[in-house]
Amino acid sequence: MSAVAAAAAEDERLLPRSPLRRLIGRPELGSVLGALAVFLVFAIVADNFLRAGSLGTVLYAASTIGIMAVPVALLMIGGEFDLSAGVMVTSSALISSMVSYQFTANVWVGVVVSLAATLALGLFNGLMLTRTGLPSFIITLGTFLMLTGLNLGFTKLISGTVATKSIADMDGFPEARALFASQLDIGGFAVQVTVLWWIGLVALATWILLRTTAGNWIFAVGGGRDAARAVGVPVERTKIGLYLGVAFGAWISGQHLLFNYNVVQSGEGVGNELIYIAAAVIGGCLLTGGYGSAIGAAVGALIFGMTSKGIVFAQWDPNWFKFFLGAMLLLATLLNLWIRKRAEAAG
């Protein structure tokens, strides 16, 4: 009976899915269309926008957001938030700077201590979440406020001002700067090293998400925690791993901050966590978890980069930047929603 029914339905079932339909099913599509639109707008209104130098600037701006947007997107796919991601970058830079300055003469000691300390912060977030079962919004809001206070308090206590002392004359500075904040010449283009970090992280995150067991678990813990646990997915370990990923991104960003400017302003980073989340959402991540992509988050970061620099190239008042970003976020989210509805309706 069912075999007959199946055979009867066979013709209809075997209709191939068109490539267009497959494309529409991708989470990144909305952000890619948005990025194209933003690109076109600035290519038309800003004369300098298409020059190689300008594009390098745009990519640099995008990379500083993208390095964090990628692990934040993974965390969101895993169903959690990290509101402490923005100030954690500053904390990481401050730890690196102060450890180097206060205890040794070599910046690499600070860099390594900072890696361990930042990962410990991520571990704290992850353990608090999995042990208490409280919403990550509350826990990371707590970490966010605590880190903001610690950043300001410790810096004032140790250096007497709101910024750290310059570490530019210390051993290892040129090498560390080459790794975290240099400019490379690739085929005649000046490319900031952060762009390479960014691309590397996007590739790694995409590989993890789509082709590894861990990626399967990330989608699962975000899309249905209890179901995932019931089939043996280590939910706690997966979530802690995601927070460690955010901490790792914060470490890279923090080191860039430090070695780019030699000093760290202790009040920086507040508010950036929302920009990372916005980039991930523009890139197609669902706020509720279980859906999204690292490439989408990267494109979301690119939109931010193009907008922030495009406004300057177009000689508009930069004060409008945040307004444009907000409008973009809403538009991209609506576009994503619309596309997903169409895709589901079309099957």
């Binding site: 399967n216 699962a220 899309g223 209890d226 179901a227 995932a228 019931a230 279980g290």
Partner: peptide, 11 residues
Amino acid sequence: VYQDLAMIPLM
């Protein structure tokens, strides 16, 4: 096989 089937709808 539980009633909720232990499945992730979006996957």
